[in-house]
Design a protein around this nucleic acid. Sequence first.
RNA 1: GCGCUCGUAGCUCAAUGGAUAGAGCACUUGACUACGGAUCAAGCGGUUAGAGGUUCGACUCCUCUCGAGCGCGCCA
Length: 576
Amino acid sequence: MSDPVVTLSSLLQPVFDALADDGAADPTVRPSEHADAQINGALPLAKRVGTNPRELAQRVVDAGALDDVASATEIAGPGFINVTFSGGFLSAELATVSSDERLGVAAADPSKTIVVDYSHPNVAKEMHVGHLRTTIIGDSLVRTLAFAGHHVIRENHIGDWGRPFGMLIEHLLDLGEDAAADGLTQGDLDGFYRSANKKFDADPEFAERSRQRVVLLQGGDADTLALWQRLVDLSTEYFNTVYDKLGVLLTDDDLAGESQYQPLMPDTLARLETSGLLVDDDGARVVFPPGFTNRDGDPLPLIIQARTGGFNYATSDLACVIDRVERLDADLMLYVVDAGQSQHFQMIFEVARMAGWLDDTTQAVHVPFGVVLGEDRRRLRSRSGEPIRLVELIDEAVERAAAAIAEKNPDLDPDERAEVTRMIGIGALKYAELSSDRVKDYVFDWDRMLSFDGNTGPYLQYAHARICSLFRRAEVERAAVRTVPIELGEPAEHALALRVLAYPTAIDATLDTYSPHKLCTYLYELATDFTSFYERCPVLKADEPTRTSRLALADLTARVLAHGLGLLGIDAPERM
RNA sequence: GCGCUCGUAGCUCAAUGGAUAGAGCACUUGACUACGGAUCAAGCGGUUAGAGGUUCGACUCCUCUCGAGCGCGCCA
């Protein structure tokens, strides 16, 4: 762990333990606006042992644990201890990090097996803004968890089963496979679904065929299954084009559709039966998890088997839990699903605990997110009131980035330009998704997300590109400065160094609550610290050894920036 | 009706129970024959929806009120 604030905490732990009445006290070290770090732990401890907090703080300082790392300490206010780190200490820490491919981030111990359930589009249905959120947030969490050293299993729980498939298969037959395939692979999924639905409502004969087709599908009829598979294949082919555009990690190997859990559902029912949780309720087979009520204040059941004998999505989700726990050996399951589903997941997880499939060491967590709002602060829609297609959003982001580059950097090499345009457009879109607290609704605004000022993707990419430019001008290889000592003379250098070293803490905080916006905030602060440094500390014009020292600090900054952006699924171009 | 989530500067967003609640945009003012101005420095702007409570200390935890969004039995 390279973060000096964390180092400080471990240095102080024995001091606090010794001063405590019961042998244990938290030093509570935090980054500070008043110094490099502040120690808050003297205040609660003084209260506990009945002494003056400032005097206790003085005893902490006098214990000498800080002498090797601090150039100054000060007791402030009611009993805070402000610490300024010595340049020598920070330089030594920077040297360690610079030689470390993991940039100071320790590998998780223990490493867990973590299943991340995200994206989950529906077969023969368009992907919309909501899919963007789950896909981007999920992708970022997957990348970050994997880097942290966990065994991550991606699962794309696509909606590939259920009653609408009778109608969709019949519609496929009516259109002819080739015509249907053209429409679906070109991304007109909504058109396909809508016309099928329309026919279902208008044409009783079609509706009847559709119902019979569902029966055939559920009965495992080979021809029907082949048609169903065709629909799934065409849709996943389309989803893959969207994933390619977005640059996310999902592949066909990650597909784990609802259909996959159908064979497991009778067993799920049987196990609930055996465990005595299953209750007959008005002909349906249900479980009543405690604490849930319906409109009338009566207990709310989770319906496992409908009166008709059919299973539904609760059953499927429970079968899925069992599969992830028993086949995949998951320690943790993350469900990146919109916040509207939270009661559903609470009930699922509670029933799974009651059944013994989940416990303190095998957990499931709903990672909810809010809705994307338009300027009017209502759910984002197109002008005609339809949900906006995800591909259109992606394409527009890239178009807008292209316009910006044409204006700002018209001389950029044409070959490089297309690639850079994509990186900036997609990066801006992703960063906008990730940079605010996921649980809140957020307002979608093209101009803001593509702005080069403020907490945006392009601003971070620009800071990175500037550093690359520095090295091009200097005609120095980036790798060549990675063993040179970094001296911290100026306050801006000191501040930047401290920020660079806080990278592991930023990752910890991000994973602690599965909140990518914390990593975004860190990277933004890193970029602003860098630009302040860049304005105040000339690099190329400086005399040696300052020049090379500053190049080394810039290189390390760029490595952390590019790496952090990588964890968000965002590329960092070398020029833009 | 019950439940969940949210409410922070004019706008968009931050803030592990720590000091004077921070950024960006907008507005005002500075800094360019430029290590990439796609920038930086500074100013203006707050009863953290409201009222209680816990705490040495509350945007943060608890209770209530108000407001917004979403969910609430055999669809997924």
